[in-house]
Simulated assay, not measured.
Amino acid sequence: MTVSTRAVKVPFSPVPPIVPALACLYLMLNLSVETWIRFGIWMLLGAAIHFGHGHRPPPTPHPHEGPPSRKEWLSEAG
């Protein structure tokens, strides 16, 4: 499909995405170093949780064991 046969045309085509991106960049550049350090710490913490969570598979019951009965389940919850 060529540009002239597209069904939707965006006015001022490259400008709408570029202007907000430049505005965000301007705001980011005006943040303090302390804010960037806090951001970096939170990003590292989030990455550690993301990559550290769920690497081991959950323990599975033995093949001869079925799910607990309702009475067993209620007594454990109790």
Rank of each mutant, 00 (worst) to 15 (best):
T2N: 15
S4D: 15
T5G: 05
A7N: 14
V10I: 15
V10R: 07
S13M: 11
S13G: 11
V15H: 04
V15P: 02
V15W: 13
P17F: 07
I18E: 07
I18G: 03
I18Y: 10
P20H: 09
A21S: 05
L22H: 05
L22T: 14
A23D: 02
A23S: 04
A23M: 05
C24M: 14
C24H: 09
C24G: 08
C24K: 15
L25Q: 05
Y26R: 02
Y26T: 05
Y26Q: 02
L27Y: 07
L29Y: 03
N30T: 10
S32F: 03
S32A: 06
S32R: 03
E34P: 00
E34S: 11
T35R: 07
F39S: 07
I41W: 03
M43A: 12
L44C: 10
L45P: 01
G46F: 02
G46T: 02
G46S: 03
A47K: 09
A47R: 09
A48I: 11
A48D: 01
A48E: 02
I49W: 02
H50L: 15
H50Q: 13
H50P: 00
F51H: 13
F51L: 13
G52A: 08
H53A: 12
G54K: 06
G54Y: 06
G54C: 08
H55K: 07
H55F: 08
H55P: 01
R56W: 10
R56H: 13
R56P: 01
P57L: 06
P58V: 04
T60M: 08
P61T: 14
P61M: 11
H62N: 11
P63Y: 08
H64G: 04
G66K: 13
P67N: 04
P68M: 03
P68C: 03
P68I: 04
S69D: 07
S69P: 07
R70F: 11
K71I: 14
E72R: 10
S75H: 10
S75N: 11
S75V: 10
S75Q: 11
E76M: 12
A77R: 14
G78D: 10
